[in-house]
């Protein structure tokens, strides 16, 4: 399962990271090195093993349905790189 430059390009697009063409080859080598090393997991017999999702072994608590948060648009917008009035602004999107 080698990561060729085309795959790197696809993955980078999915991850929304702009990668220059001349970086594809070195990235491909680095990532393949890591993946090759990770491939040792294929030795492990995992038949019938239930996957473990997280570190906590308990059931989830639920909170009551009450309005306890929000109502501070100034704080929400305070760090915005671009805003227009009470809206965040981004380059125009065509749907």
């Amino acid at each position: 399962m080698a990561l060729d430059p085309t795959t790197i390009r696809r993955i980078a697009t999915l991850a929304r990271i702009q990668v220059d063409d001349d970086r594809l080859e070195p990235l491909s080598q680095e990532l393949n090195g890591i993946l090759g090393w990770i491939a040792q997991l294929n030795e492990v017999d995992v038949d019938g093993v239930e996957p473990l999702t997280g570190g906590a072994q308990m059931a989830m608590k639920m909170r009551d349905d009450a309005v306890t948060d929000g109502g501070y648009p100034d704080k929400i917008l305070a760090n915005a790189p671009d805003r227009n009035g009470a809206f965040f602004a981004v380059p125009k999107v065509v749907e």
Binding site: T13, R16, I17, Q18, I76, N79, A80, P81, D82, F88, V90, P91, K92, V93
Partner: peptide, 19 residues
């Protein structure tokens, strides 16, 4: 992603801005 806080590097389209 440059929308609500932190760094933004502009782009012609939203996906360019993200990238």
């Amino acid at each position: 992603d440059g929308v609500r806080y932190g760094l933004r590097r502009d782009g012609a389209e939203l996906s360019d801005m993200y990238g």
